[in-house]
Structure formats: structure tokens, C-alpha cells
Design a binder for these strands. Structure first.
Lengths: 205, 205
DNA sequence: AAAAAAATCCCTACAAGTAGGGATTTTTAA
DNA sequence: TTAAAAATCCCTACTTGTAGGGATTTTTTT
């Protein structure tokens, strides 16, 4: 029996995962936490086999939490998961000692596979992750300087026109950059860029 | 001389604040941090008079950082600041021991005033904050259950149509809720709701 | 110096959210 | 039980971003 705990500040997502795992008889959800600190407490209390944790959480983020967990309990396997394919986040989770990484839009099958794989002491990184596709997992700087700049401004809440005024370029240029960013990140849809920019507010270089 | 440190994961914002404070001769920025853990280290090292910290930061968030700082250095005054008027965040910062709270879109004058006020051991909470306007600062539940639900779904990246399908209601209804939420939060503009929903991913009740 | 990458700008069409109205039904609270 | 609040739905007009093209100039890199 694989005993797991889930950490995710979004309760509805936890509920979804729990529901999804109900049919997997060898996997048991023994606890859940809504922030990093609660996760640490929970792990100390229950000592699960596998921890599934969001990157971005209140109080303590998933990366720091993973570091602490792996220091105290090296045998516990941690799977990180987040909304987007953030190369840096994946690398940081790996450095922190995580055994796996999946994305929130991954299928149930992927989730289950990830849990079983890490429980067998193997690592599992979602095949959708860009980091897996390209060999060089160190410097994978996909976005150009200008694109990063524009992404940052999007995250700050600026519209294309506002950005064009801030950077003294045309609105059309900003739109082109947006499209290129979307293409590079393999995203579609209306608000994805905004969400991505805000979500990854981390590590803008 | 008021010695302050700034914590904010968005370097450009730190730069902006520093620039703004250059002309204030009695205020000196003696350090900056891009995450909660770095902030704690910095405070221990430099022991400033005032700390200005973002709520949402990698590793350790502003609320937890404030709690730690106030435990170790009760005389240091902390000012929280964030993008939006999150009633819960303000309350939590207050509980953690913060002396003030301002919003990122506050004017420079407000920022300077806040710093000087807390340095005088008085508390400063931005007059724009809803919490200040309404007397009952405990339960200030502005958004209805349905509105919160929709806001959550927006944060998860769903469009109005998708939300309407998820909740078995019409698209028009979702739009109305959006408009009401915007009105209640006093927001305008295209992506504000998305950004707000993602930013406040915290504490959805 | 030549090729590749990045940055700049324009076009049309379409989808989605905002802003301003209005209106009805269902819940909740006094 | 009756007001008040919440939730439901519809209308038109407008703005903004996405998707699909194309094209030119400026920087890098080889």
C-alpha cells in the first residue's frame, strides 16, 4: 500500500485528486495540506511514502518544503506538480530532491503512473515537460530577453497598448511577441499568458 | 535615519521603490530580498528599523516572514504590501504583527507616509483598504458564495463558457457575476479578474 | 561577410470579456 | 411572512487578445 499526502492550496484540486485515486486500491491518501507549513507538520505526523505537492503555496512553497522533507525523511519520495511547465521550477524541485514532476493538466493515468514509479524508487518526470525533450537541461532559455520583459509586464497587469507605450514600440509588436511566447510555451486560450505570468512571478531573469 | 529593507520577488518593483525613496533623506534602503527566506536572513544581518514586504513570495510568504521577524525582533516594524486589497491578507498580516499595509498601486506619498508613521510606532493602514472603510473588520465577506466559486474557476483558467458548463448555468449569468465581482472589488480592465484570482489563490473559503 | 535569430510592424477575422443597461426567480434573513 | 440579498438570464456596444498570415529591419552568431 502506497500511503500518500497531498499539498495544494486549492482544496478543489485536492478533492479532485482524491476522487481520482479512489479506484486505485494500492494507493491511499492519508492526509492533505493547504500550505507548506501544514505539509511539513503532516509529513512528520504521518510519515507517508509519497508526497505530492504544489510548487506555489502559502507560507512555505513546495520547493522549500521538499528540501525540508528530504532532509528529515530521505526515504520519502516527493512529486512536484504545477500548472505550467516551468523549466526552472522543475530544476529546482529536482535539486531539492524531488523524484518526480507532473503538470496539473496531466491525465489521471499519468498521476497514478507517477505515484507508482516513484514508490519504486525510480524518478518520473512528465514526458510533456520541455526539459525532457531537449537534452540540455541546464540553460534551456526558451524566451528571449524582450519576450521575458513583455511577459513580466503582462504579469504586472499591463495591456498590450500599455506595454507598447512603456517600451516605446508599436502595439502590433507587442501582439507578435505575445503570439510567439504563446507558441513557445505551447499555450492557447485567452488568459493563459496572464495566468502564466502571474503564476511564474518567480525567477524572472 | 530610518533604515529599511524591502522584500519583493519582483526586482523591478524593488528598483522602483528604491528610486522613489532616493529623495527622502531620512529614509535609507539598506537591503533587499527576493524571497521570504532571504528576507529573514537579511533582517538578522542588518536589523533594520522598518521592513516592507510583499505578501506573496517564493519560499516563505510575507505573512510567515512577518511572524518570524516580529518574534525575533519585536521592535522592527513591518509594512505589508500587495497588489490587491485582500481583506484576509490584511487581517493575517495584522495578526502576524505588521504595523502597516499598503497597496502596490499606492502613491509614493502614501509609501513614504507609511514608513514614517510606523517608524513612529504608530500603525498605518492604507485608507483605500476596504477593511478601513467598513467598521466591521472581522467578517467583511464581500463576495457571495457563488461569486467566490466563479472567481476560483477563473483562477483555474476557465472561460465564462467553461464555467457556465461546469456550474450548469448560462454564460450570461457567469458574465453578470464577473461584472458584480469587478464592481465589488472596484476593479476594471481586462485581465484584472484573472490576475486577482491567481494572486489571491490563498484562502478561498 | 553571410546566415540565423530577434525585434519590429501591418492585415483580416474571430472569440471573449467589459460596460451599461434591464428583468425575473430563488434564497436567506429579519 | 415579507423584505433584502443572491442568483439567474438577456440586450447592445465596445475593447482586447488570439490565430493566421506576411514583411522588414536590427542584432547576434558563425
Amino acid at each position: 500500500m502506497i500511503r500518500i499526502v497531498i499539498a495544494e492550496d486549492h482544496q478543489s484540486l485536492i478533492d479532485g485528486i482524491k476522487l481520482s485515486l479512489q479506484n486505485e486500491l494500492d494507493i491511499q491518501v492519508i492526509g492533505e495540506a493547504n500550505d507548506g507549513e501544514a505539509l511539513i507538520d503532516l509529513v512528520r505526523l504521518k510519515e507517508p511514502n509519497v508526497v505530492i505537492t504544489d510548487i506555489r503555496m502559502p507560507k512555505l512553497d513546495g520547493i522549500s518544503a521538499t528540501r525540508i522533507i528530504k532532509t528529515e525523511f530521505p526515504t520519502i519520495d516527493v512529486i512536484g506538480f504545477s500548472m505550467f511547465d516551468q523549466t526552472d521550477a522543475v530544476a529546482q524541485m529536482r535539486d531539492a530532491g524531488a523524484s518526480g514532476y507532473i503538470m496539473k493538466n496531466s491525465s489521471l493515468a499519468t498521476l497514478v503512473e507517477a505515484i507508482r514509479t516513484v514508490a519504486k524508487k525510480k524518478s518520473f518526470f512528465d514526458s510533456n515537460l520541455m526539459i525532457e525533450k531537449n537534452t540540455s537541461l541546464t540553460e534551456e532559455i526558451i524566451l528571449s530577453k524582450r519576450e521575458l520583459e513583455i511577459l513580466r509586464l503582462i504579469g504586472e497587469g499591463n495591456s498590450s497598448v500599455e506595454i507598447s507605450e512603456l517600451l516605446f514600440i508599436g502595439k502590433a509588436t507587442v501582439d507578435t511577441h505575445r503570439k510567439n511566447i504563446l507558441k513557445k510555451l505551447n499555450m492557447h486560450g485567452k488568459n493563459d499568458l496572464v495566468r502564466y505570468a502571474v503564476e511564474r512571478k518567480y525567477d524572472f531573469t
